[in-house]
């Protein structure tokens, strides 16, 4: 039987892959995609517990998380485009002004 434990396990695998992507990739676009993976892991967790407890509130919260993810993607990609205009690259290593 597939229970809430399976969903939670898959969710934390997805979360760990997303965090690893944020940590190791140089390309800003891929970092943003990894953040989307992390938000998807959170949604999966919410829906799993919503199913387990028979409570709709988890799904409603996931709707708001999806809204936030859409706004975050729009702003993040706009920042990437303006960085590309400024520096001609989208590598994280090239954004080092605050390094000192």
């Amino acid at each position: 039987m597939i229970g809430v434990t399976h969903y939670v396990a898959l969710s934390f695998v997805l979360f760990a892959i997303g965090v690893t992507g944020v940590l190791i990739r140089r390309n800003l676009l891929t970092v943003l995609m990894s953040i989307e993976l992390i938000l998807n892991a959170a949604n999966l967790n919410l829906v799993a517990f919503s199913r387990h407890l028979g409570d709709l509130n988890g799904q409603l919260f996931a709707v708001f998380v999806i809204t936030l993810a859409a706004g975050e993607a729009a702003i993040g990609l706009a920042i990437i485009i303006s960085m590309y205009r400024l520096k001609g690259s989208v590598n994280l290593d090239d954004a080092s002004e605050l390094k000192g």
Partner: peptide, 19 residues
Amino acid sequence: EPFVHTQAGAGLVVGFLLL
């Protein structure tokens, strides 16, 4: 060019620790 940071090994270790 490399597509990951030079500290990618440390990042992988942190990811697996989190897992």
